[in-house]
Amino acid sequence: MANLADVSSQVSTRAAESAPPKKRVLSDTWYSVLLITPAMIFIFIFALFPLGYAINVSLRYADLTSPQGISDYVGLENYRFALNDNIFWASVQRTLTFGVAAVAIEMVLGIAIAFLLNEIKWLKGLARSLFILPLAASPVAVGLIWRYMYHPEFGVYNGILASLGLPEQNWLGSTALAMPSVIIFDVWQWTPFVALIVLAGLQALPKEPFEAARLDKASTWRILRTLTFPMLAPVLTLVFVLRAIDAVRLYDAVFSLTQGGPGQATEVVTYYLYRLGLRFFRLDQSSAMSLLFLYAVVVFTALLMRRFMRNIAERARRA
């Protein structure tokens, strides 16, 4: 039976060899172009066209409350306004404050939690599932719940403070506490993201170098410093870039918690752009500012990714 199968496979192979080669409909180049085309169309419609439109609007006078709407070209006047607008620069400063504080806390906590989750022996799956919960929730919905938790009279945080005999706080109504409150909310929501990615990176590390280090009686701190963190560096860079970009784009948390207040204490760039463009209908100025902001984010990301890609290339060359 086995011989019969061998013979039949040989016959079919020979038949395939003797048959004339099938003519290919598309060359490799055109096949590649065909595969890329849908993604390119998508990118053009949803990224490049809006970008071009924003550039066009930023060079015109566009006050939607005036009868002419989007009208004549005004050159770089909107950029001149944006670069000399103190409210814009104050919102940039608040965005940077928020980004630095939130991302730093999230990275430190996320890495610590990832190490803990990597070490625990039981209920691993349950712990991970619980950690994903804040990520799965809608930021606006959770923001509204947190708004009630921060409430000065009925909020759970002031309840805890009162039970400890500490003075109650006006979490979202005080200029000193509003930004830290937004940061705490963001840390609660996004630390699990950092933890999960770092945990995946930790679990993908090879075991041999660590076993060799333990045999050589290297201290835990030395293993961390010379093995774990250098090997985790690409993952850490990636998660840092993702979180930093997301942190400077913060909008939903501010919208649901404080709406930029009290005063302008939590008015970050995106919220100011929303207010200027969609409340005051100055699409020209808000487009110019959003393009300046996009420029800053692109430069920051490009510099980090350049370093990241160079490190990966060096590692590949060494390997």
Binding site: L76, Y79, R80, Y295
Partner: peptide, 23 residues
């Protein structure tokens, strides 16, 4: 392109306040 935009922005923000508007 990044350098061109950066120089343009520095020009508008800092130099134009000294030499007046000139795009």
């Amino acid at each position: 392109a990044i350098i061109v935009v950066l120089i343009g922005l520095v020009w508008i923000r800092f130099l134009e306040s000294v030499i007046g508007p000139c795009d």
